[in-house]
Every structure is written in structure tokens, then in C-alpha cells.
């Protein structure tokens, strides 16, 4: 490839990357600034931590933080855990595997709001699930399943929508492991679980991390699923933020927004690092070994 002048590159990147950086930068900046009292739409502006104090003192704030983390974490982990066995099963093509994979990935194409409606329709008071449960005799009478307080319906919907995405990422990663590598492990005595733990998971850890992070951020900041099928006694962070915004309490909305961004970042890092630590400690070990060798060389 050619090495052009930095000016040309800057010029070319400006409309695309430049616009993105300015836009997202401005959004983040405004969120942070408003959370500490600047850019007020009404009244005086100026540095104050008052809205943070108020926010952090609220029980509902901490409930929302815990609840959103709970949803984000479990949506990510369950989706990935469900996608792995399927990705491994579909690793080698067989008759009908394309159909299976297309069927499984179909929820990717269905809009979240539509999915929420389909789900509501199924679990409604006179819906097919209630009817089925009464028919099997497990329920005596129809039960109210919508907006269950345990958020099981919401989690189900999250996994329904996100598992295909994890599957998409993991299928590619799993397929790029050569059969010889897996055969070598098996030949040396590794059974199915050991092969997963020592070969498959470490080799697909990047895809696993990507899936965990993206699903986590998506579910952490969920608004539509929460407001349609989620429990009514708790609010997600996005819902909480919109609650303040719709009342014109921008400073508090900004505080929640900053929380959301910070949690996205922190959660993503924690998930990625944990996944790597569980399945791939070696690189760290190798860095230490390398460091030791360097030290020895330096001393001698």
C-alpha cells in the first residue's frame, strides 16, 4: 500500500471519524457537564455536586443500578452459554445444518419491539402459554405472567433476542479452529469437557468477549423490553433516566446517563478480563516468564 501525506489522511478521515468523535464526544461531554450543574436549560448554571448527592441518596437509584447490572450480566452470560453448544454442534456442516442455523438466527431480524409484542401475546392472561399450562394441569386457573416481578420474562426475551447474535460471533470463531487441533487434543487424552476448557474456549475467547460486552451494554441500557415486559416495581437505568428527563430534571437524568456509561465501560472490562482469566491465564503467565528472562539477562 501507499503511504500518503498526513494531511490527505486527515482530510479524508474528517467527515467520517471526525463527525463521530465530535458528536459522541459532545454527547458524553454534555452528560457529564449537566450532571455537575452546567448547561442548565432553566435557572443558573455552575459547578455543583448537588444533583449527584441527591441521586446517590435515593434508594430507587441504587435499585435501578443493581437491577440493570443484574439484567445486563445475566443476559450476556446466558446468551453466550446457550450459544456455545449450538455453535459447536453447527461447526461441521451436515444435512440441514444451514436451515437450523438460519432458524436460530431469525430473531436477529425481528425488531425488539415486535419481539416484545409477540411475547406479550403468548404469555397474556388468555394466551397460549396459560392455556397450555391449564391443559397440562400445572395451573388451576390462568395466571398473570406479564411483567412478572422476578424479571424472568424480560430475561427470556433478552436471551431470545441476543443468543443469535452470540451464535453468529461464536460460530465463526469455532469454525476457524482446525479439526487437526481438536483431534490432537483428543488424541492426547482430552475428553469433551477438557477440549472445551483447554482448547475451544481459549481459542474463541475474543469472540466470547465481544459477544459478552456487546450484549451486556445492550441489555444494561435496555428501555423497550423493560417498559413493555419488565417488572413494574423496578426501573432500569434507561427508564430511570427517561423518567427524570420527561420531568425536565436534566441534572439527575445526566447523573443516571453518566452512571450508565461508566457501568457499561466497567462492566465490559470486568466481563472481558474475567473471561480471559478463566479460559486463558497463559498469556499473563507468559508475560511474567518473559519479564523474568529479561531481568536475568539484564543482571548478567
Amino acid at each position: 500500500m501507499i503511504r500518503p501525506s498526513p494531511w490527505l489522511i486527515t482530510l479524508l478521515l474528517l467527515p467520517g471519524i471526525g463527525l463521530i468523535v465530535v458528536f459522541i464526544g459532545a454527547v458524553i461531554y454534555i452528560a457529564i457537564a449537566q450532571s455537575i450543574g452546567f448547561y442548565n436549560l432553566s435557572g443558573e448554571s455552575g459547578f455543583t455536586l448537588e444533583s449527584w448527592d441527591k441521586l446517590l441518596a435515593r434508594k430507587s437509584y441504587w435499585t435501578a443500578v443493581r437491577y440493570s447490572l443484574f439484567i445486563g450480566f445475566w443476559a450476556a452470560v446466558l446468551s453466550v452459554a446457550a450459544a456455545y453448544p449450538i455453535a459447536l454442534w453447527l461447526r461441521k456442516p451436515f444435512k440441514g445444518s444451514l436451515t437450523v442455523s438460519a432458524l436460530l438466527k431469525a430473531p436477529l431480524m425481528i425488531h425488539g419491539i415486535v419481539a416484545a409484542f409477540l411475547f406479550l401475546n403468548i404469555i397474556s392472561f388468555n394466551g397460549i402459554v396459560n392455556q397450555f399450562m391449564i391443559w397440562t394441569g400445572l395451573f388451576d386457573a390462568p395466571r398473570r405472567l406479564q411483567n412478572d416481578s422476578g424479571a424472568w420474562g424480560l430475561l427470556f426475551l433478552q436471551v431470545w433476542k441476543n443468543m443469535p447474535f452470540a451464535l453468529l460471533l461464536l460460530t465463526g470463531a469455532v469454525q476457524s479452529i482446525s479439526q487437526d487441533t481438536l483431534n490432537a487434543a483428543q488424541d492426547l487424552g482430552a475428553g469433551a469437557i477438557e477440549r472445551f476448557r483447554r482448547v475451544i474456549a481459549p481459542l474463541t475467547v475474543s469472540a466470547m468477549q465481544a459477544a459478552l460486552i456487546i450484549i451486556f451494554i445492550d441489555a444494561l441500557a435496555d428501555f423497550t423490553f423493560q417498559t413493555t415486559v419488565g417488572p413494574t416495581n423496578r426501573q432500569s437505568l434507561a427508564q430511570y433516566m427517561d423518567f427524570f428527563r420527561s420531568r425536565g430534571r436534566w441534572n439527575e437524568a445526566a447523573g443516571v446517563g453518566v452512571t450508565l456509561m461508566a457501568l457499561s465501560l466497567a462492566g465490559a472490562i470486568v466481563l472481558a478480563v474475567t473471561a480471559r482469566l478463566i479460559f486463558r491465564k497463559r498469556p499473563i503467565g507468559r508475560v511474567l516468564a518473559w519479564y523474568e528472562i529479561r531481568n536475568k539477562e539484564a543482571r548478567s
Binding site: D180, T181, A184, A185, D187, V199, P202
Partner: peptide, 30 residues
């Protein structure tokens, strides 16, 4: 008997070394 229980060791044409493991870890895998 499945391959993992057989007392055989195979040298592959492609070598099939575990790309994520160090040489040492590869050697002691079995």
C-alpha cells in the same frame, strides 16, 4: 475405545500445535 482413551499419540501433517499455548504447555498437554 474413543481416541482420548487410547494409548496412541499422533504427529499431524499440519503439526496441529495449540496456537494459544506455549511450547512448554504444548509439550505437557498430554
Amino acid at each position: 475405545m474413543p481416541p482420548e482413551q487410547r494409548d496412541t499419540a499422533l504427529c499431524f501433517q499440519s503439526y496441529a500445535l495449540f496456537p494459544h499455548l506455549s511450547v512448554e504447555e504444548n509439550l505437557v498437554f498430554g
